[in-house]
């Protein structure tokens, strides 16, 4: 226990927590959107994140040929390279998410089997992804070359902002805003909301259910992929099991904000990022996962519908 850290390191902890929180926001979109339409937890989302981190690393290392000794890039080349990594990671994660839906959920949904079967097959797909990557990489951690030189760009009293932190916060906020607009304004977004309200009725209204569900997985996957890219710019490291603890944290964030609720995921993600960062400073990093888990259990115990969500117990299908 070390509470003095909270006072002396307040601003850095706050900023790091916010950056981590914004990454969680994007990943928890993957959970919350899928939950909204299918009423099922997308167990493979943590692996979709993992695939995204590898896409970023592979593009910068193998496609552009950068390695640990490469000098950081500048100007147009930096934007172009980062952009390529981002697109690759979003595409890779999005496509994986759609494939996960086809392999794990679609057949079972058509058959109308019980929820347990879908859950188990989703876990199976998640194991296949994780183990496949483990065997391909020989369980070796991969590090991402530092493309963006990390410098402190803002000095305002005790507040010091690094450029990668700003990138994460600004970029994640923009993406979240876009998804939120997309879901509330466009036709497809309205279809997604309709399906999440009632599958049967939206079918009667002529909505192509499979298309809407695929689109939901695609968007959720792409957001998770973007989060993977941001994670790689900040933490620069990945491994086959990187998704496990992050996935659990992002899921907790989604539950905290009320699963199925986009704005809830936003506040939940931020709250959880801050909480994790402060808990790690006070208790030590090894207890981070334990704190997250305790938060999850406490939320489920006392406020199962989350801070902003619908009542979980009443949305039973």
């Amino acid at each position: 226990m070390n509470f003095s850290v909270v006072v002396s390191q307040f601003w850095p902890l706050l900023i790091n927590g916010l950056a981590l929180g914004f990454i969680y926001v994007l990943i928890s979109l993957g959970y919350t959107m899928v939950y909204g339409v299918l009423r099922l937890i997308n167990f493979a989302n943590s692996e979709i994140f993992m695939v995204g981190t590898f896409a970023t690393v592979i593009v910068s290392r193998n496609f552009f040929g950068f390695n640990q000794n490469t000098d950081p890039l500048h100007g147009f080349k930096l934007i172009y390279t980062l952009g390529a990594c981002l697109v690759a990671s979003m595409l890779m994660s999005g496509v994986t998410a759609v494939l996960v839906e086809i392999v794990a959920y679609r057949r079972l949904r058509a058959k109308g089997t019980n929820r347990l079967a879908s859950l188990i097959s989703a876990i199976g797909v998640s194991i296949i992804l994780q183990e496949g990557v483990r065997i391909l990489t020989n369980s070796i951690p991969y590090s991402n070359p530092r493309l963006l030189k990390k410098v402190y760009v803002v000095h305002a009293g005790p507040i010091e902002l690094r450029n990668d932190t700003i990138l994460v916060i600004v970029f994640a906020a923009i993406l979240f805003f876009l998804v939120d607009r997309f879901v509330s304004k466009t036709l497809l977004g309205k279809a997604i909301r309709a399906v999440s309200m009632s599958e049967e009725t939206s079918k009667l209204m002529g909505i192509n259910l499979n298309r809407v569900i695929s689109a939901t997985f695609l968007i959720g996957g792409m957001m998770t992929g973007a989060a993977a890219f941001l994670y790689e710019t900040v933490y620069e490291n990945t491994k086959y099991n990187v998704g496990f603890s992050i996935g659990l944290a992002a899921f907790t964030a989604a539950v905290l904000g009320g699963i199925g609720n986009l704005r809830g995921a936003f506040y939940g993600g931020l709250a959880l990022g801050l909480l994790e960062e402060f808990a790690a400073a006070i208790l030590g990093t090894q207890w981070k996962a334990v704190t997250v888990f305790l938060v999850l259990v406490l939320v489920l115990l006392f406020k199962p519908n989350g801070l902003f969500g619908e009542a979980v117990q009443q949305t039973r299908v």
């Binding site: 167990f43 603890s245 996962a289 334990v290 115990l301």
Partner: peptide
């Protein structure tokens, strides 16, 4: 573990137990 989670739908139980399994291991390590 069951008291808080078994009140809820099955998916929550799945993810809470998933976390619990890992937490027991982390506690044993630390």
């Amino acid at each position: 573990l069951g008291l808080p989670t078994l009140r809820l739908r099955g998916d929550y139980l799945a993810i809470v137990t998933l976390g619990f399994g890992e937490i027991v291991r982390i506690v044993a390590v630390n």
